[in-house]
Write a protein that binds this DNA or RNA. Structure first.
Lengths: 383, 383
DNA sequence: GGATATTGTGGGAGCGCTCCCAAAGTGATG
DNA sequence: CATCACTTTGGGAGCGCTCCCACAATATCC
């Protein structure tokens, strides 16, 4: 203990390095809670109470402690806090390696942005974890449990992913971005893929297109299936004939969009519109159309999904379905925070002294942990 | 609110959701080092030595401990370890808010990927920190110092950024991606902007272009100035006349590429090639060219910089300069890890007794901490 | 006026680990 | 057979915080 004190006793307030000039001054000694307490002439517990905003502190004392905190430039050590409190004040955003392509999309940046800003409000830290191998993926739940993080945010979940279950088993709160199936038991935040696809196709039909095809995403992703479902619903709603040859399977890659389009052109030369389940596939399809000498949108109208960067830069710019990405990120963070008890939706309201019976949840919207956000059709030149 | 405590004791979703929770399995009990020690019939110190790979353990003991670790499924608690060891085993990748546009670029994903994979090798965690406001930016150094992280990686540094200096003052090891000036004192990893630009322009000249213009990036970014310098060098090397009207200022945005191109076309109608300091500006320039009825590359050849997503999707695809992004990320992580002494054991933490004569400025004369990686010209249809 | 609440406050007891020192064990040496 | 050098091991002493219990110091009541 004496050793600790030395660093400070030697030369005045530790964090006045601003006064002594850059790089020249005192050693970068970080004051501890104990030192703040001594300075303020109070006990450790009291300082702890003040910095945690406990109401059980007198005004006088609080002011004294705050002054000491300022003078010393005290910032609590999060590691110590985490150890003592048993919670890390950090959550991990987990991305399986194969999904890193995904990074380059505004999608990812939007999620990140939303998550980050919501987390900042709760003063929690964001850990980014790329799982490079299947082994890492399997071990992740175990590591996560080593108390370094309080919860997990999972993006780009596939139907056969086991990680969510591993996390559930390990009792680690997790929120998925998207769901694995219609009956996803875990908390998730998704967008209305069915509705978005439906709106896109309805738009094409309203525009006068007769033969509307689609290029789908990989069937092991629920979002892809939903988009295909939306397509079918819109076709049915319009009373158009259902034709399975108008449905080309893709896998969200540009290449699959290209080959899917070629297949469609070969099977059904008369198509005059295509709904692609992703913008990237639409870009591939656009190339195939150009190769086939079809003009967009005059010969074939094109609509994508995602509103990614390529959409705006295609020629003509691509009509597409936008997801409320930033909001999805925020929502994921909120759901997780709520799960952790770190965030109360109605925290601003006076505390409910006597809560009435469990408030009945609106049907469909289900519990607070299953959320589906609306999409929006962005019209551009391709349709 | 006592929500947190309530959650733990009361039986909410968080941790102690009950031994008889919904999933019914074993209670989520995390074994401690102490328990492993007991199980293996050894002392805590010995277990610690084993899990940290100390050589001072007999084979017999090591085997016994490892068996106990396996049986119990022991994973060290990183928080406790960080507190005891005084280092957090985590570094932060910091991104100022205005740069989030940057996210949507393969650039960012590449850096992230490189950083992440190198960090994983060193078993360090990656904290992603978006600084949403100037205030957050100013406070960051202080927070960072609160021992949650060992070092910082900074991307997209501007000439007038003070954060790097704040970090240096707080003695927090930091590595920049790019530099603020030719005389950057802090450790950095950059790519050869001058060489890349030079190669791009030389390529245009070799191709037979007579009047090569450029649209530059914002002058407050050193990278932008370097690219402009590279342009000038190549012009000079080829013996072409230097003409300041061939240099249009931009700011890396599409809009500035557009207006820059219009200005160039107005001032020097005869230009037959343009080197844009970023792909995004090239996209803007491309639009202006189309508006002016100039064909690419027949009338005007176009080259960009960055090899971003737009480059591949332009029509024609854009010739551009690629940076070894993934490798830059890796290199940043390596430099930081080296700075932290993660390669050599025995890192003295709080206040070394009497360190002989360490250079007072960690980022002093650097060879190992100042790295410039080569770029590569990617030829596509636009030139 | 004495008993009982109420509000503030100090500080002990950890959280799970690393660091380090002294003790125990081992073998070679004179 | 005592001595010394080395290896291996156990466990005390924290790291900086939160939690919580006891103990003031008032305030409230019959």
């Amino acid at each position: 203990m004496a050793a600790v004190r030395d660093g400070q006793a030697g030369g005045g307030p530790p964090t006045l390095s601003g006064g002594t000039g850059p790089l020249g001054g005192a050693p970068p000694h970080r004051p501890t809670l104990e030192q703040v307490a001594r300075r303020a002439g109070v006990g450790r517990g009291t300082v702890s109470r003040v910095i945690n905003g406990s109401p059980r502190v007198s005004e006088r004392t609080r002011a004294a402690v705050e002054a000491a905190v300022d003078e010393l430039g005290y910032v609590p050590n999060r590691v110590a806090r985490a150890l003592a409190a048993g919670s890390a004040d950090a959550i991990a955003l987990v991305i399986p390696e194969p999904e890193t392509r995904f990074f380059a999309e505004p999608y990812f940046s939007g999620i990140l942005h939303g998550v980050s800003s919501e987390l900042a409000r709760a003063d929690m830290q964001l850990l980014l974890t790329l799982l490079h191998s299947q082994k890492e993926q399997d071990r992740f739940a175990q590591y996560a449990a080593a108390h370094r993080i309080d919860g997990v945010l999972l993006v780009s979940v596939h139907a056969d992913d086991t990680l969510p279950d591993l996390l559930a088993e390990a009792r680690i709160p997790a929120v998925l971005n998207g769901r694995r199936s219609a009956a996803e038991p875990l908390p998730y935040v998704d967008c209305d893929n069915v509705g978005g696809a439906r709106a896109a196709v309805a738009h094409l039909i309203a525009r006068g297109c007769e033969t509307v095809a689609t290029i789908t995403g990989p069937p092991d992703m629920y979002a892809a299936r939903c988009r295909a479902d939306g397509y079918r619903e819109a076709i049915r709603d319009a009373g158009h004939p259902e034709d399975e040859l108008l449905v080309a399977p893709g896998d969200f890659t540009e290449e699959s969009g290209h080959s899917g389009m070629r297949r469609l052109l070969a099977d059904r030369p008369g198509i005059d519109a295509v709904f692609c389940a992703s913008d990237v596939m639409a870009a591939g399809a656009r190339i195939a159309l150009r190769e086939a000498g079809r003009r967009v949108p005059d010969d074939v109208a094109l609509v994508g999904f995602d509103d990614s960067a390529v959409a705006r830069h295609m020629d003509p710019p691509l009509t597409t379905v936008r997801q409320p990405i930033d909001e999805m990120g925020r929502e994921m963070a909120r759901v997780l925070l709520e799960l952790l008890g770190k965030w109360t939706p109605g925290a601003a309201y006076p505390a409910p002294p006597a809560q009435p019976a469990p408030s009945p949840r609106p049907p469909g919207a289900g519990d607070r942990t299953h959320r589906v956000l609306p999409t929006e059709l962005i019209r551009r030149g391709s349709s």
